[in-house]
Write a protein that binds this DNA or RNA. Sequence first.
DNA 1: GTGTCATGCGTAT
DNA 2: TACGCCTGACACG
Length: 270
Amino acid sequence: MPEGHTIHRAARNQNKWFKGKVLEMRSPQGRFADGAARLSGQKLTKVEANGKHLFYRYMDSGDVLHVHLGLFGKFKIRKPPFPEPSPNARFIAWTDEAQLHLAGPTACELLTPEGMDAIKARLGPDPLVAGVNGAEQIHQKLARRKSPIGRALLDQSVIAGLGNVYRAELLFLVGLHPFTPANEVPLEKISELWDLSVTELKIGEKSGRIVTVDPAEMGKPSRAKLTRYERLYCYKRAGKPCRRCGDTIVSAEVDSRKIWWCPTHQPLTA
DNA sequence: GTGTCATGCGTAT
DNA sequence: TACGCCTGACACG
């Protein structure tokens, strides 16, 4: 389930197990055989997350492993005794203590540091990178865009790390209709959106799932007590009542991705 | 068991 | 705008 929170969580977890360690590596599926052969036996300096991208730094050689999970990619961390890797594993990498198992990524490639910088350069601010305030930057990028804010939020060069779930939920939380022209969203609203992104993605990174609903509104004591059907306000809730006002959640397609909103909380003419 | 859809994105048209 | 890539979950029968 890869939006930015998943990627940062993966980096944190993988650093815990593999940072500073010499990793053996191979590609059961074969599509990363050359890369695995090159990296195998190298010491992994650290894992960095930026938006939905992961960069594995090998400072001794300068090699960078770039992974993007896309829609289907998944990591597993396994403890010994290691089970047989699935034949479709793009790579497995391991020490004596743990094994990292990757399947189904959109990107798994070797880069130079320059190649990594080029990818980072085209990403907008990432709410999960500490110490960044992206509001001004985002506002400037949107200044000349008449296209809908609902499209802009999935553009990784505007803001890095949001996916379709956070898009719908954040727009609900700030009360913006997804079809609002991006350049008509005032800086204060962008600021609100940015701050909420930080808050919500942090919650997602900690818990490992996207939970935007305030548990008190559902009469629950904590986020952890919410059922899978109670965690979101809008995403995939077409035809259901808004949790706050009871109006019917509606949906539409933007660039062949679905989006959901509450007509009352997110009027087009705000 | 089969079919559809999905938290993504690059490339071709 | 459409398609291809890649996998797993779930609805349906």
